[in-house]
Design a protein around this nucleic acid. Sequence first.
DNA 1: TATGAGATCAACT
DNA 2: GTTGATCTCATAC
Length: 191
Amino acid sequence: MAASPKIRRDFFNRSVHRVAPELIGATLLVDGVGGVIVEVEAYHHTDPAAHSYTGRTERNAVMFGPPGAAYVYRSYGIHWCLNFVCEAEGSASAVLIRALEPTEGLAPMRRRRGLSDERALCSGPGKLCQALGVSIKHNGLVLDRAPFELRARQHKPEIVIGPRIGISKAVDHPWRYGMKGSKFLSKPFKT
DNA sequence: TATGAGATCAACT
DNA sequence: GTTGATCTCATAC
């Protein structure tokens, strides 16, 4: 199989709404463990649902930094969520990685998750971070250097679009992107 | 299949 | 003091 080109950090130097759909089908690895991105959501600083909406704080400082970095935060006190910073320094936009199709390092993922069901390993932002071992240690790290590895997709997949999940503000913005027909989505898309 | 509650904590008001 | 960009398990249908 031909090696896919690595995604460099300048890939993220564009609008989240352009970056997000292009991430579908790309491969994300952390320490060699990961898979194909099948679901993401876009967050923009003008968006009431975004952490950056009310301005820079200690938690979201990475979002205000240069694109191509990972923004990791704790959700509901227990889970971690992984975002990729986009656009430009200070624009405070990011793409939330919501689901992966596991392809590399199945054994460590199953061990970390305590599950054997492949479909449940990475089908949600909290699950995905647990399976890949992502935590606050990764906050602020750039995505084109170890332990991260991002590889571009070979072919453009069919993309489905819908409203975002688990938020209470700006719920109608269709800023959730998924790979059509994937069995590894956190929730099915209404088509 | 669907709905609901509990876990658990840092940031925010 | 309240609220989540969530997940899992239990109970109901």
